[in-house]
Design a protein around this nucleic acid. Structure first.
Length: 765
RNA sequence: GGCUGUUUAGCUCAGUUGGUAGAGCGCAUCGUUUACAUCGAUGAUGUCGGGGGUUCGAGCCCCUCAACAGCCACCA
C-alpha cells in the first residue's frame, strides 16, 4: 500500500460496483424495498455543488442496501423547459440570432442537440461522485414513453373537467415571450413614484401612468363621502378622450392616495377582477412583445411601457393634469429567469383546476401519509396548498411537449398565426387574412406560434393521429403551440419513471407495483412547491397513493458570504474540480460533516482538505493494521474466539458498539451531520490516537513492562477497522471499498464487496 | 402584509428526551529512526444576541426585545 491514499482508483471501483449489479435491485416480495427517485437534474445544467448533495441520497441508499433491503435509486434528467430555452437563446444571441429566426421544429431540434451533449456528461459526472444509481433504469423527461404518459394524464384531467382555457390576467414576460405561473414570479421592491393625475371630476393616484391609455373606469369606495355622489357619472379620459364611468367598489381603500383608482382591466390583476365584477370594457394596450401596439392613440403606438410612461407624463404635465408626484416603493413582479419586470396582460392560457387535487394532498400531509423532515416544512407546504390557485400550465415556448389540443383553422379563421414563409420571412396575421396567400402546408411547416381565441373549440388528442375536424371535416388542423410547464411533466416523474400505466393502472409494471410509493424524496426546499407539492397532487390524483412517504429537505450550499452559488456571481466551487484535487470521498464527507438539517452551509476548500486528511487517516490506519497482521501471521483474525479482558480492548469495543448504535439511529433520523461527526471522532480519536497508540506498546516485546498481547490486539484491531469501514462506507464509499478489497484478499473475507456487505450489528464480547 | 429560520471559541459551524460547553480550520509551545507531517502531544480564547420567566438545575422549555436571512403574497 502506498504511503497516502490516492483517489486514482475511484473509477475502477465504481466500474466494479456497476458490473457486479449492486446498483440494480432484485424484486423480492418477501422484503420491504427502499426506493428513491433522484430529483432529476436539468439536462442543460452542468453539475454544481447542489448536485453533489445527492450524496445524502447515496448515504441512504447505500445504508439500506447494506441492511439487505432491495434498494433502488432511480436516476434521470429533465429537459427543463424555460430554463433550457433561456440558456439556449442566450447562446443564439451571442451568435447574432434569435428564436424568431427559426420555425419551431428547427428550433426544437437545435435545442435537443444542444442539451444532449451535457445530458450525457451529467451521467458521467454523477458516476464520478460515486452515486450508486441504477443506470439500467435511467430516464429522460423527453423520451417518448414519458411524454406519452404525460399527455394521457392531461387527457384524463381534461375528461374529468379539470382543464380549461381562459383569458385572465397572466404574469407575462415580454422578453422571454411567455406567461408564467404565480410561483415563477419574483417580487422585487421597486422605488418609484405615485403620480396624482387629474381625471376631470376627481384625481387618481397611480404607480403606472402609462396604463391610463387602457383605462375603462374609475373606482371609488361607495362609503367615501367625497365621491359618493359621483358614482354613475362619466368623465373624459385625458389624452384619449374616451368616456369612462365612475363606479363604486368596496375593495377600494379610502385612505390610500386620493381614494380614487383608475381601472385598467387588461393590465392589472386587481383591475381585472373589478372589471369582471362590474362588466367593464377590456382594452389591451400592450401586446405580447411588450410594445403599445394596440388600442392607443397613434402617437403612443409602438413603444415599451417605460417609454410610454414618459410620454404620458410629459403630455399630462404640458396640460397641467399632474397634480403632484410622491415617492413610493412597492412590490413588482419580475421574471425569475431573465429578471425583467413582468407585464400583467390578458392572454388565453391553459389552466388546471387545482382545488380537487389539492384537497387530498392536504389530507395526506395532515394524516401523516407523507411526512416532512424537518417538520417545519409541513407548515409551509400546508399554508401554500391551502391558498393555492388554479395553475397556468401553458408556456409559450417550443422546448417541451406541446399541449395535445388541435384547432380547426376553417372553423376558427380568427386564429392568429406566426410563421416563417418559404423564404424564411416572418409572417404574422389572422388565418382568414392569410389563407389565400399561403398554403396550409407552408403555414404548418414554418409555424412558430398560434394564438387561438379563448372560446375556440379544440380537440384533445394524445395520439396525434387526428386528421379531420369533426365539425367541418377540414384537414387544416393545427396543434396548440403552447407547451407544458416543465413541472407539469416532472410532477408525474415518480409515476412515469417507475412504469405507471395511465390507461390501466392495474397493468403498471412490476417495478411500479413494488417500488411505489417510494421511500424518501430528498431535495432542496426551493422546489417544495414547484415540484414536491405537484408530485404529491399528481400521485394522489392518478394512483390514490402518495409518491413518497417522506420528504427530506436538505441543506443549501452557499459561498463564504452566505450567498447562493451561481455562475453569474462567479462564486461557484466546482465539485468535479474538488474531486480531482482531493478525491470524491473528501468532497462527500465535507458536504455532510457536522451540518444541521436544512440549514445553509459554507463549503470551502479548507473543509474539503480537512476531510481529505481524514480519508488518508483511514488509509494509513489500515496500513498499520495490515502491517500488524503480517507481523503475526499465526494469530486468528476472528474476534469470536478471543478472550477480551484488557481494559483497552474493552474500552474500544464498547465505544465501537456505541458508534454502531448511534450511526444507525442517526441515519434513520436523517442526522447525517451528527453521524459523520461521531464516526470521524471515533475513528480518528478513539481508534487511532488512543487504541492504536497503546496497541503499539502492547505489541512491542522490547518494552520492559509491555506484555505481548497480539492474541487479543490483532482480532480487536481487525474488528474495529472492518466495522468502521462498513459504518463509513455510505459516506465515503471509495476509500472504504478500496481498503476492504485489500483486507478481503489477505484475510479471505466472505463478503465480496463492501457495497453489498451487511450493516454492522452490536458485537458481543 | 403573512410566515419561517438564524444569533454558541478569531473564522465556519455542531450540540432533540433540560444535568459540569464541542468539532474543523486558525493560533501557541513541544515532539516524531516512521501507519499517517494529509502526523502526534499539550494549551489559550466563550457572562451559548439582550432582558425576563419556569426549574434543584436552561445553549436546549416559555415570554419579550434586537439584528440578520429566507419564503409566501394580485392592493392602486
Amino acid at each position: 500500500m502506498d504511503k497516502s491514499y490516492s483517489s486514482a482508483t475511484e473509477a475502477d471501483i465504481y466500474r466494479s460496483w456497476e458490473k457486479s449489479g449492486a446498483f440494480t435491485p432484485k424484486i423480492d416480495k418477501s422484503k420491504t424495498p427502499f426506493s428513491i427517485v433522484l430529483p432529476l437534474p436539468n439536462a442543460s445544467d452542468p453539475m454544481h455543488m447542489g448536485h453533489a448533495l445527492f450524496t445524502i441520497q447515496d448515504i441512504l441508499v447505500r445504508y439500506h442496501r447494506m441492511l439487505g433491503d432491495p434498494t433502488l435509486w432511480l436516476p434521470g434528467a429533465d429537459h427543463a423547459g424555460i430554463e433550457t430555452q433561456f440558456v439556449f437563446e442566450k447562446k443564439l444571441q451571442k451568435e447574432g440570432k434569435s428564436r424568431f429566426d427559426y420555425d419551431r421544429q428547427t428550433l426544437y431540434k437545435m435545442i435537443w442537440d444542444f442539451v444532449e451533449e451535457n445530458r450525457i456528461l451529467n451521467q458521467f459526472q454523477m458516476k464520478k461522485l460515486g452515486f450508486s444509481m441504477d443506470w439500467t433504469r435511467y430516464h429522460y423527461s423527453l423520451e417518448p414513453k414519458i411524454v406519452d404518459n404525460v399527455l394521457l394524464t392531461f387527457k384524463k384531467l381534461y375528461d374529468d373537467g379539470l382543464i380549461y382555457r381562459d383569458e385572465k390576467i397572466v404574469n407575462y414576460c415580454t422578453h422571454c415571450g411567455t406567461a408564467f405561473s404565480n410561483l415563477e414570479v419574483v417580487h422585487k421592491t421597486v422605488y418609484s413614484h405615485l403620480w396624482y393625475i387629474k381625471y376631470g371630476l376627481l384625481t387618481v393616484a397611480t404607480t403606472r401612468p402609462e396604463t391610463m391609455l387602457g383605462d375603462t373606469a374609475i373606482a371609488v369606495n361607495p362609503k367615501d363621502k367625497r365621491y359618493k355622489n359621483l358614482i354613475g357619472k362619466k368623465i373624459l379620459l385625458p389624452l384619449v378622450n374616451r368616456e369612462i364611468p365612475i363606479i363604486g367598489e368596496e375593495s377600494i381603500d379610502i385612505k390610500f392616495g386620493t381614494g380614487a383608482v383608475k381601472v385598467t382591466p387588461s393590465h392589472s390583476p386587481e383591475d381585472y377582477d373589478i372589471a369582471k365584477k362590474h362588466n367593464l370594457e377590456f382594452i389591451r394596450i400592450f401586446d405580447y412583445d411588450g410594445k403599445s401596439n394596440l388600442n392607443v392613440p397613434e402617437k403612443y403606438r409602438g413603444y415599451f411601457p417605460s417609454q410610454v410612461r414618459q410620454m404620458v407624463i410629459d403630455d399630462l404635465t404640458a396640460v397641467g393634469l399632474i397634480e403632484k408626484i410622491e415617492d413610493y416603493s412597492h412590490e413588482v413582479g419580475h421574471c425569475y429567469r431573465c429578471g425583467c419586470p413582468l407585464e400583467p396582460i390578458t392572454a388565453p392560457q391553459w389552466y388546471l383546476r387545482i382545488a380537487p387535487l389539492a384537497k387530498p394532498a392536504i389530507e395526506a400531509a395532515q394524516n401523516g401519509d407523507v411526512k416532512f423532515f424537518p417538520s417545519r416544512f409541513k407548515k409551509a407546504y400546508l399554508t401554500w396548498m391551502e391558498s393555492i390557485r388554479d395553475w397556468n400550465i401553458s408556456r409559450q415556448i417550443v422546448w417541451g411537449p406541446r399541449i395535445p389540443a388541435w384547432y380547426c383553422l376553417d372553423c376558427h379563421p380568427d386564429i392568429k398565426l406566426n410563421f416563417l414563409d418559404k423564404n424564411k420571412n416572418i409572417v404574422t396575421g389572422f388565418y382568414k387574412d392569410l389563407k389565400d396567400k399561403y398554403s396550409f402546408e407552408e403555414i404548418k411547416n414554418g409555424l412558430q406560434s398560434l394564438i387561438a381565441p379563448v372560446d375556440a373549440k379544440y380537440i384533445v388528442d394524445c395520439s396525434s393521429k387526428i386528421e379531420n375536424c369533426p365539425n367541418c371535416h377540414s384537414t387544416s388542423l393545427l396543434q396548440e403551440t403552447d407547451t407544458f410547464d416543465t413541472w407539469f411533466l416532472s410532477g408525474q416523474w415518480p409515476l412515469n419513471t417507475l412504469g405507471f400505466n395511465p390507461k390501466d393502472p392495474s397493468k403498471s409494471s412490476p417495478d411500479f407495483a413494488y417500488f411505489y410509493p417510494t421511500s424518501v424524496m430528498d431535495t432542496l426546499w426551493d422546489i417544495l412547491f414547484f415540484w414536491v407539492a405537484r408530485m404529491i397532487m399528481f400521485g394522489l390524483y392518478l394512483t390514490k397513493e402518495v409518491p413518497f412517504k417522506t420528504v427530506h429537505l436538505h441543506s443549501r450550499v452557499v459561498d463564504a458570504k452566505g450567498q447562493k452559488m451561481s455562475k453569474s456571481k462567479g462564486n461557484v466551487i466546482d465539485p468535479l474540480v474538488m474531486t480531482e484535487k482531493y478525491g470524491t470521498d473528501a468532497l462527500r464527507m465535507s458536504l455532510v460533516y457536522g451540518i444541521a438539517p436544512a440549514s445553509d452551509f459554507v463549503v470551502s476548500e479548507d473543509k474539503i482538505r480537512a476531510q481529505r486528511n481524514f480519508v488518508n487517516k483511514i488509509w494509513n490506519a489500515s496500513r498499520f493494521v495490515l502491517m500488524v497482521v503480517d507481523k503475526f501471521p499465526k494469530v486468528g483474525a476472528s474476534l469470536a474466539g478471543a478472550q477480551i479482558t484488557n481494559p483497552d480492548d474493552i474500552s474500544i469495543l464498547t465505544n465501537l458498539n456505541k458508534i454502531i448504535t448511534s450511526t444507525t439511529s442517526d441515519i434513520n433520523r436523517y442526522h447525517f451531520g451528527q453521524a459523520s461527526e461521531n464516526l470521524y471522532q471515533f475513528f480518528w480519536h478513539d481508534f487511532c490516537d488512543i487504541y492504536i497508540e497503546k496497541a503499539k506498546d502492547r505489541l512491542d516485546p522490547s518494552k520492559p513492562t509491555g506484555e505481548v498481547g497480539e492474541e487479543d490486539v490483532v482480532p480487536v484491531l481487525l474488528a474495529v477497522l472492518i466495522t468502521s469501514l462498513k459504518l463509513l462506507h455510505p459516506f465515503i464509499p471509495f476509500v472504504t471499498e478500496s481498503v476492504y478489497q485489500i483486507l478481503r484478499e489477505k484475510l479471505n473475507l466472505d463478503e465480496a464487496q463492501l457495497i453489498t456487505a451487511s450493516w454492522p450489528e452490536v458485537l458481543s464480547f
